[in-house]
Simulated scan of single mutants.
Amino acid sequence: MIPLRKYLDGLNKSIAHYDKLFKTDDYSIVFYISATREHKDFVKGAITCSKQKIVEFFIFIPYKEFDIFTEQMNYILDCIGQGIIFVFKKYKTDPAGIEEIMNKMKALIASDPEKYQKWAKVE
């Protein structure tokens, strides 16, 4: 998730609605990701934390088991990408670059699955 976060941050996306609300484009958009067996909305939110200038969304990935790690990650990245694109479209923000980032992440994982299968400390 660390490389994914860096790539997404590199897009420098903001949502006009929250630019206006916070009176700045200096705020954080946070996506929480969870797998669920329950029937839930695919994306929930936004939760707005005005003091901290944070907007939170929750992406619920329908639980599915995989035998192959790269297939699992492709499924997860597809769901995350769809969730982020859904949010951007909902707020009339251009989602350009999201699919390319997800494809880049899939290629990274496919090139060295064992590296990405290990837990890493957050820097």
Rank of each mutant, 00 (worst) to 15 (best):
P113R: 03
C49I: 08
D26H: 07
K64Q: 15
L21Y: 14
S14L: 01
G10T: 11
D78I: 14
E56Q: 15
E56P: 10
W119Y: 10
F88E: 04
I68L: 09
I68N: 04
I98N: 05
I76L: 10
K92S: 07
F31M: 13
G97K: 07
G45S: 12
D25Y: 01
P113F: 01
E65N: 12
L108V: 00
I33P: 00
L4P: 02
M73H: 05
Y116F: 07
K40C: 09
Y27D: 01
K40R: 15
I15V: 03
K118R: 08
Y63M: 07
S34H: 13
I47S: 14
E71K: 06
H17K: 15
D9G: 02
I59A: 14
F42P: 03
I85M: 13
F88A: 05
F86C: 08
K104I: 01
F60K: 09
K53N: 10
L77D: 09
G83K: 04
I98A: 04
G45N: 14
I85C: 09
Y75W: 09
T48V: 15
S111P: 01
A35C: 06
D9A: 01
G97W: 10
E65S: 11
A46F: 14
M105T: 00
D112Y: 00
L11E: 05
D112I: 00
A46H: 13
V43G: 11
L4R: 00
F88C: 02
D41T: 10
K104M: 01
P3S: 01
K118Q: 12
D67H: 07
G45V: 13
G81W: 12
F66S: 12
I47H: 13
L8G: 03
D25S: 04
K64I: 10
K44Y: 12
A107L: 07
Q82L: 07
E71V: 01
V30W: 04
K115N: 10
H17N: 03
M1T: 00
E71T: 06
D78L: 09
Y18K: 04
A107M: 05
D19Q: 11
K115A: 12
E100V: 09
K6E: 00
S50L: 15
K40M: 12
E65M: 07
K53R: 15
F22L: 09
K23G: 04
F60C: 06
H17T: 15
I2R: 03
K106R: 14
Q72P: 01
K104S: 00
Y63E: 14
K20G: 06
I68T: 02
G10M: 08
V43A: 11
I98Y: 05
I59N: 12
K40P: 10
I54M: 07
K115M: 12
K23T: 05
M1E: 01
K64E: 14
A46W: 04
C79Y: 12
F42Q: 05
E114G: 04
L77C: 00
G81D: 01
I98E: 03
Y32C: 08
I80L: 12
M102S: 04
F22T: 14
K40Q: 11
L21F: 15
T24M: 12
K40A: 07
P113I: 10
